[in-house]
Design a binder for these strands. Structure first.
Lengths: 252, 252
DNA sequence: GAGTGGTCTAGACCACTGA
DNA sequence: CAGTGGTCTAGACCACTCG
């Protein structure tokens, strides 16, 4: 590998035009992940092998892996190897759902599918997902319950183009987190997400599902999830009942 | 420095009992920060100087600094040096306040102090701040407004022992973020915080201050802030109006 | 014991800052 | 220009896992 990149344009083009070697390696490795050369749950080649492949030192590969691990794309396990992160594992189940019960541990949520149907993307949804208006989308509604008590009402929009063949049956049959299904069945891996949180009053249908009074205060959590290259692939609006749960956030 | 630590107890005591050199260096540097040998905004010694002081290689110091920078305790500036992070700077003003206007940029918030008085800690506050019940605390109430519109009502509890001499006058006189004042005037630096977020209905007094109707839905943001050693030093309950703002969170 | 990631070193050179 | 942090290398050794 060379440290300097050939300039894509004459020097007139601005910009740093300098990228450290390990960043170039990181970009190459990200492509291997994106193109599913390495699949979720599998081990990637050892640091030594990668160093040989890219013709750099182990330390340089290491720094690239460090950053990918910091971004939760890879997981290192000493003595075993470096693995592609997956949403299927137990201990990462609640990386995206930040709702905690007032007392006790996270987890123990049960899912109930309400419906799953195809429709045309409304303007607002299309814009968020970078689709054309009236492009086909799949809309999923479901409820999460904690010990028989409904706590979350989710309304999920997915681009049909990426999730061909997703049906209510397949959703209902699936065990484990939804992002695990997306990953294993559709090759769509959620990397990061942005949430916008507001307080709203429950409307009649939502109140009914969540067993609350109309106008009860609810957390509205609008989540836009991105895959590789910051491409948005899911828009989700959750209504969270916070009578015995809270949304947890760590600032640092 | 030696890599192995002398065992504090006979081998019967469990535990890894192995701490890498750079972690030991990191701990020493954290103490220098905690004891104000290096003050917010100032430069710490160069990597070479620290390597000489601790009798390790530059790379080892570097790794320690890397972690402290990742935890926002230090800030690296290429060509200039490594600096102690501070809450006084512009670009970190909104590291802790995650409220964004629906349209436009963050910032532009004005503060108005409602009151600041001494009282005895109620049980719940005492527990969170790890004080004894009825230990003296300072309670501050204030409003944040965005373009003349009140948006946040904060209720803040501080242990009197740490903030001796904090008065309404000093609070009112101060420009810039409150955490900047705590840092420069009281030597208390907020390192990280945990927030618990719920949706609640506005009570009459809160509604009046925020110019909303009674029972309007509000975000209740309960923040526990910690200083070095994860010692809790502030409990804050904010009520956020989310009619034209939202709480932003990034998941990754 | 062989293979993995994790630590540590010493030295070279690069990019950035400011006097 | 000297001094800072940032990158890269080559090699040694350590801690962990598993057969």
């Amino acid at each position: 590998m060379s440290v300097t990149l050939p300039p894509a344009l004459p020097d007139a083009a601005l910009g740093p035009a300098f990228s450290p070697l390990y960043q170039q390696i990181k970009a190459l490795m990200t492509k291997s992940l994106q193109h599913a050369e390495w699949r979720p749950g599998e081990a990637i080649p050892s640091e030594m092998e990668l160093a040989a492949r890219f013709k750099v030192s182990q330390g340089t590969v290491r720094k690239a892996i460090d950053e990918l691990a910091a971004e939760n794309l890879l997981v290192r396990r000493q003595g075993k190897g470096t693995f592609v992160a997956t949403h299927a594992e137990e201990h990462v189940q609640f990386r995206f759902l930040r709702l905690m019960p007032d007392t006790g541990e996270a987890g123990g949520m049960t899912r109930r599918l309400i419906d799953c149907k195809r429709q045309r993307a409304p303007a607002e949804i299309a814009r968020a997902l970078q689709l054309r208006v009236s492009d086909p989308v799949i809309r999923v509604r479901r409820v999460l319950s904690f010990r028989e008590t409904p706590v979350v009402l989710d309304d999920i929009w997915l681009p049909s183009a990426l999730f061909k063949g997703l049906t209510a049956e397949r959703l209902a049959a699936h065990r484990g987190p939804m992002y695990g299904l997306f990953e294993s069945e559709f090759g769509v891996r959620m990397i990061r997400a942005e949430e916008k949180i507001r307080a709203v009053a429950a409307d009649a249908p939502s109140a009914a599902v969540l067993a609350l009074k109309v106008d009860a205060p609810l957390l509205s959590v609008e989540r836009l999830s991105m895959t590789y290259g910051d491409k948005p692939v899911e828009l989700r609006r959750g209504l969270y009942s916070t009578t015995s749960h809270y949304y947890r956030n760590d600032l640092s």
